[in-house]
């Protein structure tokens, strides 16, 4: 897959509490701090912090970024149906989507590539904690897009998560990477 180097737009969406905004911050930090590129992370959420639809736009570029919100999304992640419904707009014609296979049943593919992965189930059942969802998702996003190097992303995750859950997050991130690789086929 060829990546737009001048402006690659990613949107993560989900429910408040799933960690998508933090996931976006980690991705931007990986690009800025560990790859020396430009990135912005711009979240949006409502007054209802937990349970309401949230999204975060991450734009990564070789050049300074003027407008900090996505206008033509290259990659869209949805971990909840309501956030898909609300925020799956402004997608590029060739946008790639990654959706939670269980939680986002209704997707309008419209000729676009839609990857399905039971992200929250992997975190909850396989790894034992739903809060690992965003690390699983990050791994899958990075495998699918190659937007930052996995080691850069891991350094950024490591800097953000508490020491006692570092190992769990590493497992989750690697599980996501593996799943993303196999989705690519």
């Amino acid at each position: 897959m060829s990546i737009r180097r001048d402006r690659y737009e990613i949107r993560f969406s989900g429910e408040g509490g799933q960690g998508v905004i933090l996931g976006g911050a980690i991705l931007a930090e990986a690009a800025i701090l560990h790859e020396g590129r430009f990135a912005v992370q711009s979240p949006q959420y409502g007054s209802r912090v937990r349970g309401g639809p949230t999204k975060v736009d991450v734009i990564i570029s070789d050049l300074p970024i003027l407008f900090p919100r996505a206008t033509k999304i290259d990659f869209f992640l949805a971990l909840a149906q309501m956030s898909y419904n609300k925020y799956a707009n402004g997608l590029a014609d060739d946008a790639v989507l990654l959706i939670d296979a269980n939680l986002v049943p209704n997707v309008n593919e419209n000729g676009r590539y839609v990857h399905r992965l039971p992200i929250v189930e992997i975190a909850k059942v396989e790894l034992g904690n739903e809060v690992l969802s965003s690390s699983v998702a990050l791994g899958a996003v990075i495998a699918l897009t190659g937007i930052v190097r996995p080691d850069a992303a891991w350094k950024a995750i490591e800097a953000r998560v508490p020491a006692k859950v570092k190992e769990l997050n590493r497992k989750a991130f690697e599980r996501g990477l593996k799943a993303g690789e196999s989705l690519k086929g």
Binding site: A28, I32, A39, V40, Q41, S42, I65, P68, R69
Partner: peptide
């Protein structure tokens, strides 16, 4: 809010 909550380099 846009500048306050966004992150950049």
């Amino acid at each position: 809010e846009l500048l306050g909550h966004m992150s950049e380099r």
